[in-house]
């Protein structure tokens, strides 16, 4: 079980983004690192079923995430990089209830579950608040709670710390590490995946390295520093 990618290619209008990806992911904490533009976000979108592979097969606990949307909702949640692209509702309570309603719960039951959660988190006064008035860290927290409401077995995190200041980042890291769910974290920052059981390094659309954090991260860091010492921004994609 877990997440399986089998010979996956993904191309946009003939331009390859990912090539020959075959992975079986079932560790509790998985990190995916790579430079901007390496294809790591596309990999996340493939796993989440937001796009379908051009060739090859993706399976989450045996189901196709792009086809069986209902089935994948219970298995997999995704936290996007920018909370403003994720929050769909004007108030906190509506945002949290949406996922439950999507999974077929009645409005009343969903509302009650939301209130229980907010009370347990000591944030009952948030219920009627406008989501647009929350701080960046609070928005990120809300997005995480909205994902957790749906009780998925796996959560995909896209640069979860990118927009957070240091205290918020520490709180978020603590919160994430306490979760029972399998976490797949993608980041350009090795710091964000340092405690992972397995780290995969994506470079130019392919798996470049795959192993424990101790095996992969020092080499990744070295390579990034070498690139940084040179003139890294000359090439234009396409």
């Amino acid at each position: 079980m877990g997440i399986v990618l089998d010979g996956v290619d993904y191309a946009v209008m003939g331009r390859p983004i990912l090539q020959g990806i075959s992975l079986a992911l079932d560790e509790p904490r998985i990190g995916i690192v790579g430079r901007n533009g390496s294809g790591k976000t596309t990999l996340l979108r493939l796993i989440a079923g937001l796009v379908a592979p051009t060739t090859g097969r993706v399976a989450v606990d045996g189901i196709d995430p792009a086809r069986d949307r209902k089935g994948v909702l219970r298995r997999l949640g995704i936290l996007f990089q920018n909370p403003d692209h994720q929050i769909l509702f004007p108030t906190v309570a509506e945002e949290l209830a949406f996922g439950l309603r999507q999974m077929g719960q009645e409005a009343r039951a969903a509302e009650a579950a939301v209130m229980r959660l907010l009370e347990a988190e000591g944030r009952a006064h948030w219920a009627g608040s406008a989501t647009s008035t929350l701080s960046q860290g609070q928005k990120q927290y809300l997005c995480l709670q909205a994902v957790l409401m749906m009780e998925p077995g796996t959560i995909l995190l896209d640069e979860p710390f990118a927009a957070l200041d240091l205290p918020t980042r520490a709180r978020m890291a603590r919160r994430l590490s306490s979760l029972a769910q399998r976490l797949v974290t993608i980041s350009h920052d090795p710091e964000a995946v340092v405690g992972c059981d397995r780290v995969i390094w994506i470079e130019a659309g392919r798996v470049f390295a795959d192993g424990t954090a101790n095996e992969v991260l020092p080499a990744f860091q070295d390579a990034m520093q070498r690139l940084g010492a040179g003139d890294a921004d000359i090439d234009i994609a396409g």
């Binding site: 937001l50 949307r69 996007f80 920018n82 692209h85 769909l88 949406f98 999507q102 749906m150």
Partner: peptide, 11 residues
Amino acid sequence: RVAEALRARGG
């Protein structure tokens, strides 16, 4: 992006 977030949570 919002359409994608909506799709991620069941459309």
